[in-house]
Design a binder for these strands. Sequence first.
DNA 1: TAGTGGTCTAGACCACCGA
DNA 2: CGGTGGTCTAGACCACTAA
Lengths: 265, 265
Amino acid sequence: MTAHTERVTAGSVGLDRLTEIVSIDRGSPVPLYAQVAKCLERAIEEGRLPPGTRLDNEIRIAAELAVSRPTIRRALEHLVSKGLIVRRRGIGTRVVQRRVRRPLELTSLFDDLAASGQRPTTAVLALDVHPAEPPVAQVLGLAEGVEVFGIVRLRSAFDQPLARMTNYLPASLPGLSDMLTREALTRHGLYQVLAAGGIHLHAANQSIGARRATAGESRLLNEPMGGALLTMQRVAFDDHGRAVEYGTHVYAATRYTFELTLLSP
Amino acid sequence: MTAHTERVTAGSVGLDRLTEIVSIDRGSPVPLYAQVAKCLERAIEEGRLPPGTRLDNEIRIAAELAVSRPTIRRALEHLVSKGLIVRRRGIGTRVVQRRVRRPLELTSLFDDLAASGQRPTTAVLALDVHPAEPPVAQVLGLAEGVEVFGIVRLRSAFDQPLARMTNYLPASLPGLSDMLTREALTRHGLYQVLAAGGIHLHAANQSIGARRATAGESRLLNEPMGGALLTMQRVAFDDHGRAVEYGTHVYAATRYTFELTLLSP
DNA sequence: TAGTGGTCTAGACCACCGA
DNA sequence: CGGTGGTCTAGACCACTAA
């Protein structure tokens, strides 16, 4: 039932090319649904499945790729959640007309800049261990006076300062002092460094606001005196729900904005 | 195999109370997995399943509730994606220690304020139809000069002005002139009004920045002269990927911040 | 009416974890 | 080793949409 005798689905574009677009390796450790989703995702992003393209129905896709329907469904659900396709009962599945930028994820400024082709640089302004002051202890859920790592960095892109980033992490996290070196922090983003050390963040609450720059901030960020700053505070948690990082950052508002994509509930 | 003879799972708290927490109505039009997820979600939020609670394994939950394992899995996956529980192979499922505030969703300022108990009010400062100016036409994907609805609103909470919101919508959207009345916009949020008229938003790109207030903005928002403003621009799309709304808003930074929750990729 | 996606089931095998 | 979640299958029935 390879269904090649079926009429090409009307609408925009039919899909016998499916097998050209999606390749499956049953020996791979990566799950089938992930392989399917990844292939379709790439095809959509590269324009091989242009906006408005109608996809075959689930049954046919499953048959052509020789996997089960639930597996295909899982792949397609993933694409829906990323906003790449739209499905409607009785209608079918289409590639969305206008692509959302990206799903909102827990990433770092460094990664974002690097991904968008800018070459971010980092200067470590301070790096020490000290007793947590009350507000820091509180957001991290620590007793007052417990030791924390304090990090202050200046992040730049294209030789222009972009943000001053201040982070606190409980010193009790295992292996932290080996990870958090000036060298590592200069070369990589904080989250990269933590991930390399086996600390994986699970979720974060963040708060974005604005205020006027102090004189020192204006100088540091090369912004006009008293200009507007974007501020962001973030508390990140690991899998167990423990707070592992608190960051309070200021961004040069003339050169930086937060871009995000929201999907309907 | 109702498994009541099983030992209560060690760790934090066992669950024979499951049937007290989750009630299922097979006659309801709402899917089983959604019913299960909803019940567990409420139990977690109300503290009846406190942080750290260990849940029974999938097989046992399925047996106790008399549904299939995939159905239970689907419910639990939903809770994972909302950051309420954590699952690990070989370990089990636990309620997360620290709850994330809320998943990031496509909502309106009005809904957010109403949900958090503040009583938002709206003043409609302008409401008209006019030819789209070039920048507006471009972000909405319209030809220059095509007619658009223009809306300017002042949103307040507790009698304090909070934001000036400017929105543009293509006049070609069906039924728009019946929906967008001063009365409706005074009483409800824009997205509520659109939803009531059958226009459902699917995704949005938004950009958050900061700048200093103009003299007029300072007066309108009751902020200090030249103070910092939070700015947000948003383009929202419907299911077909057509841009249906463009908004450009300014917020009083001393009284408003964006709160959001990020989950790891 | 024919075709679509949405839901649900009952089972199977595997990879990972801790004791 | 036993227990856990992760993956995959092969079916079934239903609700919705368009012609």
